[in-house]
Amino acid sequence: MPAALHVPERPALPRWLRLAAAIVPVAVTAAIGSAATQAEIPGWYAGLTKPSFNPPNWVFPVAWTVLYTMIAVSLWRLLGAMPRTGPSREGWWLALIAFLVQIALNAAWTPVFFTAHAIGTGLIVVAMLLVMVLWTIRLSWRFDRIAAWLLVPYAAWVAFATLLNAAILRLN
């Protein structure tokens, strides 16, 4: 008896809609971050005492450009992995909700830290962000391992940002 040929299902969302749904929240987050930091980098942030491991200012936009691209691709892949039916669909929705929560926390951190000058509250937000990114990786793994792996450098950067935020809080 011949083996059954498995033909993968088409994604539930059209490719262009998945692309927009992946790019828009990440682009909005990037825009919020950029707007919140522009005036604060040469003023308030420059006046803070920073630890010796604080990178030069030019590193941040370069790192975030690469990371935001990876985040958008990860979300695009996760959106394409949506099961049409079955019990795994609930798990996929949980992964998507976790993804959107971590994007919202990402968007919140910059205005909290830079605009409000709330270093302690920023530490709480970035620590929550780290937990949510790690949870998103875990939840996404089941549906698309490449999507999950694309978030690993982001998790590493957020872990570094958490350490940096904590050090800035301690020094100031």
Rank of each mutant, 00 (worst) to 15 (best):
P87T: 14
M128W: 04
L78N: 05
A108M: 06
A22R: 15
T121H: 01
W109H: 01
S52W: 11
M82H: 02
T29H: 07
A30I: 08
A46R: 15
A30H: 06
T29Y: 00
L139S: 10
A12M: 10
Y154E: 10
W157L: 01
A108N: 01
Q38A: 14
N172H: 06
E90L: 15
P83F: 05
I124C: 05
G33C: 13
A63E: 01
V62S: 08
N165Q: 09
L150F: 03
T29K: 11
L150Y: 03
F113G: 04
L96D: 05
F114D: 03
I41E: 03
I32F: 07
H6K: 10
P51C: 11
N57W: 08
T121Q: 02
I124E: 00
W135I: 15
F160L: 12
P83C: 08
Q102F: 01
N57K: 06
A156D: 05
I41P: 08
L5E: 10
Y45D: 07
W135R: 14
L139N: 05
V26G: 11
S34T: 15
R84A: 10
T136N: 03
T85H: 09
L139E: 10
T65Y: 06
A166H: 12
R142D: 02
I168C: 13
G91S: 03
Y68F: 14
S88D: 15
A156N: 04
V62I: 15
I23A: 15
R15D: 01
R18A: 15
N57V: 15
A39P: 05
V126W: 04
T69Y: 00
T121R: 03
P51G: 08
A104E: 03
A31N: 04
W76K: 09
L134C: 14
A166V: 07
E9A: 12
N172P: 01
P55S: 11
P56S: 09
S88C: 00
A63W: 06
W109V: 04
A98W: 13
G80K: 03
P83G: 08
N165M: 05
T37H: 11
L48Y: 06
S74G: 15
W58G: 00
A161R: 05
A4T: 12
L123N: 12
V62Y: 09
